[in-house]
Design a protein around this nucleic acid. Structure first.
Lengths: 260, 260
DNA sequence: CGCTGTCTTGAAAGGACTCAACGCCGGTGG
DNA sequence: CCACCGGCGTTGAGTCCTTTCAAGACAGCG
């Protein structure tokens, strides 16, 4: 995007979206239609990609990145490490997520980003984001919106950590993850691949691995979910929803962002 | 701001800031200088104010506000209520905070905002925010920035809720609050007024009132803090900081936001 | 086929909760 | 002016959820 005005004549602009970008584009378009030009710009700034192995670090905790990481394929976590060796996971990222967009303005990453499966990431330079905020205010607005949804998810997690017991926290999250995966086409009905380990679930929801295991067993025993291997299936959506007091409103799926 | 271009000739534009707005302006200016025009716009959109009694509701949970609440005086909480009657406080707001700025784009308030002391609020119409994003991109950028800091605070809280014990959570928060209050001139060294009740602290940090009480006593007995009435004093900053593993970086105080 | 990471289960210890009672203090009204 | 009252802080005791420690089972992979 060195010459933003020259974009559009580029390789894949007209309605032809690079396949790996579809989760991201689809995500943004749920909040209102994008022009071909805007989609072209997004493809242009996301042209540089990088692949990571499972467990590899994508962004180092405490670093000052000059680009933000748009997750194209695979799953990642945002995590902070404490002095005693424990860690807190503050977000699970799925394809289409802008894992560290907030670092564009905040400059410093107080948490790190790590791949939990093999992952492919588009590296979007902050200088390109400068161009977007300058020349494509509607895109900037939608990006702002996505960071606000991020905050809303944090608050939902705070609520489960602060006021719900272990099985309920997990029930809530399993509902959340289904809806988020479905929004990018990665869930088949109430079935999906649960990519994170029980240890990672524990580090996200303030539980020990052992207790995550027992809590999942509780949900299984009650017939709310079944799982074989990494594959999870919600058997009784309404009961699981009720257990976790889940209300998808905070994900703001499909909420329209008006052009200004 | 019906005629944004007519602003500037207004009542109190040139370097004369309405006193109650100083915490807010001061907060924004720490991230880089504002022009007189920008400050004038802020005063203009914040012209309408409203006062609340302690415990009064400022924004209703689940509502779709048409304006956002800028806290001028007093303290407020963002809170969500669960079905079993418990509540989760996801933020404590101090003068200068834009309590529900996120609702400008998200539209719907998944949490409510409530005054915990007598409070005065400036009601900023979302239509005025539209004008700001259109005509004052740098202000929009700084507002975006403040919502990102909000998210960073959420993540810090997640970490304390998920991985720290009760006294440590409170220690962390007492450090955070000192720095935030100091940034708007409401702390005298390591002393400040702690406006929230122990019940509110419990609802914020996932603890019972009783356990908050015991945990504060622990901090007092260890000589980290003293308190008489609402007045709190940090007696051993380094020890308190260490106990809560507090690092103010996530507040991003003084981080510059470049003009785009 | 053995290795390693992950899942699973048991038992004991501990942090936090609930229930309950009491003290303190400022506000209100007689 | 003082007694009453309600909100808030404090403390004790018993219970429960969750953790830690420990040991196997299981499964994917080189």
């Amino acid at each position: 995007m060195d010459r933003p005005e020259s974009r559009g004549g580029g390789s894949a602009s007209r309605s032809q979206v690079r396949p790996e970008l579809t989760p991201f584009i689809r995500r943004l378009e749920q909040h209102g239609p994008l022009t071909e030009e805007e989609k072209g710009v997004l493809q242009e700034v996301a042209r540089s990609t990088k692949s990571f192995r499972a467990r590899e670090e994508i962004v180092r905790e405490g670093s000052r990145p000059t680009h933000s990481s748009l997750l194209l394929e695979g799953f990642a976590v945002r995590e902070a490490h404490l002095e005693d060796g424990s860690r807190q996971i503050s977000a699970f990222h799925i394809p289409g997520d802008f894992a560290d967009l907030h670092a564009y303005l905040l400059k410093r990453m107080n948490e790190g980003v790590g791949a939990i499966t093999p992952a492919k990431v588009a590296l979007v330079a902050h200088s390109d984001l400068d161009q977007i905020t300058k020349s494509y205010p509607h895109l900037a607005r939608i990006l702002w919106f996505t960071t606000l949804v991020d905050g809303a998810v944090h608050r939902a997690w705070l609520t489960t950590l602060g006021r719900m017991e272990a099985p309920q926290r997990l029930a809530h999250f399993l509902c959340e993850l289904r809806d988020r995966l479905a929004s990018v086409g990665l869930a088949e009905g109430n079935s999906y691949v649960l990519p994170m380990t029980q240890e990672e679930l524990g580090d996200a929801f303030g539980l020990s691995t052992v207790h995550v295991n027992r809590s999942l067993k509780t949900l299984r025993d009650e017939g709310l979910i079944t799982s074989k291997g990494r594959h999870l299936r919600i058997e009784d959506w309404e009961a699981l929803r009720q257990a976790g007091q889940y209300d998808p409103g905070y994900l703001h799926l499909g909420v329209q962002v008006s052009r200004c």
